[in-house]
Amino acid sequence: MTADRRTVLRTAAQLAALTAAGGLLTGCAGGTPRRADTGTLAAHPGTVDPQQTTDPAWNGGEGPESPAPAEPQPTGQPTAAATQSSTPPTPPALTPLAAGTPYEVVYGPRTGKNVALTFHGSGDPRLATALLEAAEQRGAKLTVMVVGSWLDQQPQMARRILDGGHELGNHTQNHLNISAMPPDQARAEIAQCADRLQKLTGSIGRWFRPSAAQFATQMVRDQAKAVGYEHVLSFDVDPRDYNDPTAAELQRRVLSTVRGGSVVALHMGHQCTIDALPAILDGLAKAGLKPVTASQLCA
């Protein structure tokens, strides 16, 4: 065998060995190189493998080295890590209640001029937002007793309510007839909504209101206390806006029965309530009554 022939054979063997070991890259000139043995993207200056954006352990397929750094962000634009905060929300400040406030509040001091407009929190978030805006335009503070399943679907509403200066409370997770439940199920209904409030706001809220009932049975009271609620919020004025009366009729129902200390039960998600709210607030003002949160009513 000639010397040239032996040289060619040695070169071919070396090339085959390098290829088997994964030491060669193939691809068109100027393109992104790929490993000949795996077909996966190899590290390339100025490029980021799409896998890197979803797999934080991605390291370019080059062994236990650190992942390739992401390209610099433009000035003033936060990185993805900077936009994700694990800091728990700051709980809202609660107005201290007056000494002797009963466990179940049906109404506040009759000698005062404050009233509490309370709302069942559920329904179309656009209607809920419109109602909050109507109240805020006139400086009224509301108490929203939210349903936990609504917060699961509309988590942004918890912060929206608090940012408007209003108060949040617990109205169970699924708004079922809590009085007819066995104790463990009733406690779960209360605790699940409390968990949603805690996660979204940093607090379970001060108030619990039983679902499908005006007053809490002793069993429901016991379960609410076990979850951490020191007060149940009932009501003494029920204008039944859930039946969707006309705005004029709803206004009449509220203003003909409300008086100092009243707790009024209303509902988000009903257009008639939004339509009637400005006139209700005007009527309260003419009567010298001021809508405040339930905590302010009992302060």
Rank of each mutant, 00 (worst) to 15 (best):
V48Y: 03
L142T: 03
R259M: 08
P183G: 02
A194I: 11
H175C: 08
M145V: 08
T26F: 13
N174M: 12
P92M: 08
S256G: 08
L117M: 11
W58F: 15
T47Q: 06
Q51G: 01
L15Y: 14
T53E: 07
R221E: 13
V254Q: 07
G76N: 11
A57S: 12
P125N: 04
L9S: 01
R209M: 11
Q73R: 09
P125Y: 13
C28S: 12
P125D: 05
P78C: 07
T83I: 08
L24C: 10
S85D: 02
L297M: 08
R35Q: 10
L15V: 09
E249Q: 13
G288L: 11
L197H: 00
A36V: 14
G283E: 03
L9N: 01
A294W: 00
T83Y: 03
S149A: 09
T38K: 04
M157I: 06
G261D: 12
Q137W: 00
E249D: 15
L250G: 04
P183Y: 00
D241Q: 11
V146D: 12
H44A: 13
K199A: 15
L25F: 10
Q154K: 10
P91I: 13
M145H: 04
T38V: 11
D55N: 12
Q296V: 14
S85V: 05
S86K: 02
S256P: 05
R253S: 13
P69S: 04
A294C: 14
D49L: 05
R6W: 02
R126F: 03
